[in-house]
Design a protein around this nucleic acid. Structure first.
Length: 218
DNA sequence: AACTGATGCAACCGCCTGCTG
DNA sequence: ACAGCAGGCGGTTGCATCAGT
């Protein structure tokens, strides 16, 4: 279900989180509150990049997270909010206590897949066209949403949707016009924090770690 | 029982935005 | 106004598990 753990060229651990790492991260965040995610791995003694730590905390370790299947009410809420906000998963997640944007996004994608499949089985020719529209709706947004172009300026596009929550149709595919941007240097996220805290790759301290203020894991 | 395709979901990646100096 | 940094977001990927044959 999860990627096998491995270390990249910089010695940064990727892939599935171990129980030990979870403990370290949870303890650190709970103790320090809103952390500096970039510095966290260094101080907490994790061979992860800050981004990975933040993601793990937000999507899995955060308290009051709901797990398991969605209730009918939640499903309906997601449908309604997606209709309203489009693929603004974080916005949708705000309205669903205990659910993360990642979880909702995953749910939506699998939900759309189901719809696609149902479409294909019910109608042959129309299916491909409908499927295209449904898929488009997942990568764009509803008619109420502004569309951001290359200039980053809101531009409306004409689209309509039917009574069905998922059958959107649009005049044209704006995605293609979003353009490509030159890659920004985001290497800071993956920079290792192993300078002074040179890790043994199989070792994660679980007793004590020294940082700006002493951090103890029990 | 063995195989295979589908599904679910955790995690990664690239990019965007807001803040600060 | 500009550059650099940090946090956040949305899309995509990898892989374990499930379901069907």
């Amino acid at each position: 279900m999860v990627r096998a753990p491995y270390f990249d060229a910089n010695g940064v651990k990727k892939g599935a989180w171990s129980e030990e790492e979870d403990k370290i991260l949870s303890a650190y965040v709970e103790r320090c509150g809103n952390p500096n995610w970039r510095q966290l791995p260094k101080y907490a003694g994790l061979a992860r990049c800050g981004k990975s730590c933040r993601l793990r905390w937000m999507n899995y370790l955060r308290p009051n997270l709901k797990r398991g299947s969605y209730t009918q009410k939640e499903e309906q809420t997601i449908m309604d909010l997606h209709k309203k906000y489009g693929n603004k998963w974080s916005l949708i997640a705000e309205k669903l206590p205990g659910r993360t944007d990642n979880e909702i996004k995953n749910y939506w994608h699998s939900h759309v897949k189901k719809l696609l499949k149902r479409n294909e089985t019910t109608s042959s020719d129309a299916a491909s066209a409908d499927s295209h529209h449904i898929l488009e709706s997942t990568i764009s947004m509803s008619s109420e949403m502004p569309c951001y172009t290359e200039n980053n300026s809101p531009a409306s596009f004409s689209s309509v949707h039917t009574e069905s929550n998922v059958s959107f149709t649009r005049e044209e595919d704006d995605i293609a016009s979003w353009g490509t941007l030159d890659g920004l240097n985001s290497s800071f996220w993956t920079e290792p924090f192993i300078t002074e805290n040179a890790f043994n790759q199989n070792y994660f301290p679980n007793s004590c770690y020294e940082a700006e203020d002493t951090f103890v894991i029990w």
